[in-house]
């Protein structure tokens, strides 16, 4: 296509939107609503997933040894565990450390009660805490550890993570269903807006075809129109979402900031929007392009 034809088509695309104001506004409004809801659901999915990953990294298994295992043997067991695939971290807790931790946790308000124990009641409680890269690989690692001689017991505390993972999965399915419905609605509305434009310009299309315009040339202004509607209908909700999300993160930081880690509960706006913006743009422009394409295709047989 010649540059002059290219710019002519772009101008025609903008003119189409102007001639068809009401439907253009309706399309942009629907797109905005759809992409906003999509973005909001997507942000929630990203955050839930991030919490799950975070927990996966923190929740491990605890490995105990049979009574009388020597320090040297314990060290050997530690090395064997480290050699297992997907193990990311192995931390040793001696029996004394285990008792100190227990006291700090349970006798903090009544330290005199702990004094009643002359010997370490957790003398047989030295352990390794083992972290795995992904929660679904934990069971395999546990099975391998259980085959190591002198290992007495393995405690898994992954129930919470599993619940969170399955919640996220269900939430993702529901979100995907909602998003698909919204996308279909968007395509139909954009197609309607363009269809109306085509009907009001059927003379123009007929003349273009009779003069000898190619299908691509007839289609181009409508495609430009669809892309512009898609672009505006994406940028607007992404901007609104960015403001809303940043505001939410700021509000949480101000309210729960003193709780330290609570401030990290939500992903930063930058990390969410680094993913959301390209996906949103591809979706929005895709909806615009697809809506225009299917609509013009039906009217090109002149």
């Amino acid at each position: 296509m010649r540059p002059s034809s290219f710019f002519y088509q772009i101008r025609q695309g903008f003119k189409n939107i102007g001639r068809n104001k009401l439907f253009s506004i309706a399309s942009i409004a629907t797109m905005t609503a759809c992409i906003f809801i999509f973005g909001a659901l997507f942000s929630v999915i990203m955050n839930v997933d991030s919490v799950r990953r975070d927990l996966e990294e923190k929740v491990g298994v605890t490995v105990f040894f049979i009574e009388g295992t020597s320090d040297e043997r314990m060290q050997q067991i530690g090395d064997e565990i480290r050699a297992i695939d997907h193990v990311t971290e192995v931390t040793f807790t001696s029996a004394d450390e285990a008792w100190e931790n227990y006291k700090a946790e349970h006798f903090a308000s009544n330290p005199e009660l702990a004094e009643g124990f002359k010997d370490n009641p957790l003398a047989n409680s030295a352990s390794y805490t083992v972290l795995v890269d992904r929660i679904e690989r934990q069971q395999g690692v546990v099975d391998q550890i259980s085959r190591i001689p002198d290992v007495r017991q393995i405690n898994q505390s992954s129930a919470a993570v599993r619940n969170l993972a399955s919640f996220n999965q269900v939430f993702t399915y529901i979100s995907v269903a909602i998003i698909v419905i919204l996308l279909v609605v968007s395509v139909i509305l954009i197609a309607n807006a363009i269809n109306l434009g085509i009907q009001t310009r059927s003379d123009e299309i007929a003349i273009m075809k009779l003069i000898g315009s190619t299908d691509a040339f007839v289609r181009a202004p409508f495609v430009v129109e669809g892309l512009i509607l898609g672009l505006i209908g994406t940028v607007l909700p992404l901007l609104l979402l960015f403001l809303a999300y940043s505001g939410l993160v700021r509000a949480l930081l101000m309210r729960f900031g003193f709780l330290g880690e609570m401030g990290d509960v939500l992903l930063s706006p930058a990390s969410v929007f680094a993913v959301l913006v390209p996906i949103g743009l591809v979706l929005g422009l895709g909806i615009g392009l697809f809506g225009a394409w299917i609509t013009v295709k039906r009217h090109l047989d002149v």
Binding site: R2, S5, Y8, D203, E204, M208, S213
Partner: peptide, 23 residues
């Protein structure tokens, strides 16, 4: 079958744009 919102010049130029004639 003229295009009502286009001027005389634009109506005629439209036929040339439609066949992708150089500007």
């Amino acid at each position: 079958r003229l295009l009502e919102e286009m001027t005389v010049y634009e109506n005629v130029a439209f036929a040339m744009h439609a066949v992708e004639a150089p500007g």
